[in-house]
Amino acid sequence: MPATNYHSFIDALQKRLQKPLPGEEAHRKMASSSRLRLSAKPNERTRRSAVLILFYPYHGSIYLPLILRPQYDGVHAGQMAFPGGRMERTDENLIRTALREAQEEIGIRVNDVQVLGHLTEIFIPPSNFYVLPVIGTMPHAPDFYPDPREVEEVVEVPLEVLLDETIVGDTQIDVRGITIDAPFYQIENHRVWGATAMMIAELLTIIAETE
């Protein structure tokens, strides 16, 4: 998608986000077998969180960043994700959560971000988080300053890569001793699966409806 189309893309996306979202129907396209089999629901211990899906023009195209989580003792170690995290008491809303967490994790300037809207909240049973994907844009490519405690690598992804249907695959993944079938997006040498892939599926469904 040429850079000259950047503003028209952003305008069309913002207008589409004001309409009803495809939600679970789109999520199901990239849901793992365990998620489809188990109907886990939020409970009184579920925590709220948010991630930021950030579009910007770069190298004559439209990009968005993903992050690779470091290896640590946790359920999402070593996974690809959007920058984000849990809501703090000082956050007035989940949009603020997404912006603050993105600033802390990858060093973007919050004041440069225009929020366009959000996708459907998605429940993540392994960590018991309810996550709101917030969509924003910047008029230029950001300088990234990743927090090494939170981010092993920032992966800048051209939108046309996400739009390429050949990056979709399916594999078996061992999760805590249980083998599950997991659809994924192959981005460079990384496999994006789980909740992040489900968010991307809804995003791509919405983008297709703006054309």
Rank of each mutant, 00 (worst) to 15 (best):
L99N: 01
T97R: 12
T171A: 11
G74Y: 14
H190F: 04
I53A: 02
G23D: 10
I200T: 00
V161L: 12
A208W: 07
I180D: 09
E88W: 03
A50K: 08
L94N: 11
D147H: 10
S8V: 11
V154F: 14
E160S: 03
G194K: 00
E105S: 09
A50N: 08
G84H: 04
M198E: 01
P70K: 08
V175A: 12
M80C: 07
G84F: 00
I167V: 07
T46M: 13
L116S: 08
Q186C: 11
I167M: 01
F129K: 12
N5T: 14
R96I: 11
Q103I: 02
E44M: 10
Q14I: 03
H27T: 05
I95M: 13
A98L: 04
I67H: 01
T166F: 08
E202I: 10
E88T: 13
L21I: 11
G74H: 04
T210M: 08
T90E: 14
E209R: 10
A201K: 03
V131R: 02
K15N: 12
E156I: 02
L64T: 01
S39R: 11
A182Y: 01
A208D: 08
T90R: 09
V113R: 11
Y6D: 01
P158L: 14
N189V: 12
L159Q: 08
Q14W: 13
Y72I: 14
G60L: 08
P142L: 14
I200L: 02
H140K: 09
T137H: 06
A98I: 15
E104H: 15
F144W: 12
D174Q: 15
A197W: 01
N128G: 13
R35Y: 05
S8C: 10
L159E: 03
L13S: 03
I178E: 15
R149K: 10
Q79R: 12
R86F: 13
G136M: 13
E25N: 15
V75K: 08
A40F: 06
H190L: 02
D174W: 08
R28T: 04
R16F: 05
G60M: 12
I135C: 00
L99Y: 01
S39D: 10
I178Y: 09
M199S: 01
P139M: 15
E202A: 06
A50W: 06
R100L: 05
H190S: 04
P133A: 04
T166E: 04
D143R: 13
L21C: 06
H59L: 15
A208G: 10
R45G: 09
Q79H: 10
V168S: 01
R96D: 14
I167F: 04
E209P: 04
H7V: 12
R69I: 14
P148L: 09
E44N: 13
T97N: 13
M198D: 00
I173C: 05
A50P: 07
G85H: 03
I67W: 02
G78N: 14
F9N: 00
E24V: 14
Y56V: 07
L162V: 01
P126W: 12
T4H: 11
K29E: 09
D73H: 09
I135P: 00
M1I: 06
R47P: 03
L119G: 03
E165R: 06
T97C: 05
S32V: 05
E165A: 00
S49C: 04
T4Q: 12
I106D: 00
S49Y: 05
I124F: 00
R69G: 05
G177I: 05
T179L: 14
E121V: 02
I53L: 06
G78H: 07
Q172A: 05
T166C: 08
V155T: 00
